[in-house]
């Protein structure tokens, strides 16, 4: 790992230069919210924004895309239509989310579609200021040490820039004049100060310790039914969660032929159809069962397997669910055995 220093006023010039590698994307205002959009320059981005509506997973496995083209002779992998992209302004929680996705899609039967997009997408992270919905401190995802190509920490006067990959290093080498390695005592003090400051900014005091046990104990809790009565089965929580990966697939054909495409699109375990098997048996017919699966996956099962939650604390479920079902309300309800208002 290498840490470099950059003057803040040099960032626009740097981003301008890296566009030579690929399209530049960054957080851009959309109404009251933010979304990653293609931009020409830093000036179009909103770096103060906390979370985008959909996490950067949309770049690595889009909402809907074509896996294969087929004709009478068989299936041909669709590849090569993925543009090279540089994503600027990704926050630590979302990079942690990408690391979880990497594990799922790249290990044990590597998914070539994810792999190609991951390969062609550079992650340029950026430090952030938590708002009232951020809880990455509770999931231990408030800082990030890997998974990015470059990471920019805003220390007011300048940036500390972590170089996380050889590709990141290549970008630096496009404009070596903008970076320096002269780090002194003050930089260290500034950085430790920054970490303390960030930690003090969190307003949410949610605590996930012990959740696996609480889930186990609360498996039969009526709290699940109460939550199930409220849930709209709208699927929004799944679409916005950076660690939800479920998908469905469908074959479509051209009119008048048996040639066509096999497409993949985002699915949600909140839907009734999700666990339905032929003959009509449904393993999770009740909304309560589906909610329990979702939250068990985030806060129990994944911890059991990998020692950390599958929730990266981004707060999107909090900022999205119309009926206020999210990691905070669900874990609190389970602990207190009461669904809050």
């Amino acid at each position: 790992m290498m840490i470099l220093k950059m003057k803040k006023e040099d960032l626009p010039a740097f981003l301008d230069s890296v566009k030579e590698w690929g399209e530049l994307w960054g957080p851009v205002k959309k109404g009251e919210k933010v979304t990653y959009a293609k931009v020409d320059a830093l000036s179009q981005m909103d770096l103060k924004a906390t979370r985008t509506i959909i996490p950067p997973k949309k770049f690595l496995y889009p909402q809907r895309f074509t896996m294969f083209d087929f004709d009478q002779d068989g299936y041909v992998e669709r590849k090569g239509d993925v543009p090279k992209r540089i994503l600027f302004g990704i926050h630590p929680c979302d990079i942690h989310g990408i690391l979880i996705m990497d594990k799922l899609f790249l290990e044990n039967y590597k998914d070539p579609y994810y792999a190609e997009r991951r390969e062609k997408t550079l992650i340029l992270g950026h430090s952030c200021i938590p708002d009232d919905k951020c809880m990455c401190i509770a999931t231990n995802t408030d800082f990030i040490a890997e998974g990015f190509d470059l990471f920019f920490t805003d220390l007011k006067m300048f940036y500390l820039v972590w170089v996380g990959s050889t590709k990141g290093h290549d970008l630096v080498r496009m404009r070596p004049d903008l970076f320096s390695r002269d780090l002194d005592k003050n930089d260290i003090l500034n950085y430790t100060e920054y970490r303390k400051w960030k930690t003090a900014q969190f307003k949410s005091n949610v605590d996930f310790t012990g959740m696996p046990d609480v889930f186990e104990l609360g498996y039969n809790s009526p709290v699940w039914d109460q939550l199930g009565d409220k849930c709209l089965s709208c699927g929004q929580c799944t679409m916005v969660c950076p660690t939800c990966n479920c998908y469905n697939q469908v074959d479509e054909v051209e009119l008048g032929s048996l040639e066509g495409t096999r497409d993949r699109f985002w699915d949600s375990c909140m839907f009734r159809e999700y666990s339905l098997v032929a003959g009509g048996h449904n393993f999770r017919d009740k909304r309560a069962d589906r909610l329990r699966l979702w939250y068990t996956h985030k806060l129990q099962a994944y911890i059991g397997e990998f020692g950390k939650p599958a929730c990266v604390g981004c707060g999107r479920c909090v900022a999205t669910c119309p009926v206020d079902i999210n990691v905070v309300t669900v874990s609190t309800a389970l602990k207190e055995q009461e669904v809050g208002k």
């Binding site: 979304t35 699927g235 929004q236 679409m239 009734r272």
Partner: peptide, 19 residues
């Protein structure tokens, strides 16, 4: 699609009116 409009709505990254 058997799921509700909300899912496509989120695919298109709209702010939620209901929220």
């Amino acid at each position: 699609y058997k799921f509700p409009v909300c899912t496509e709505c989120k695919w298109r990254e709209n702010e939620c009116i209901l929220y």
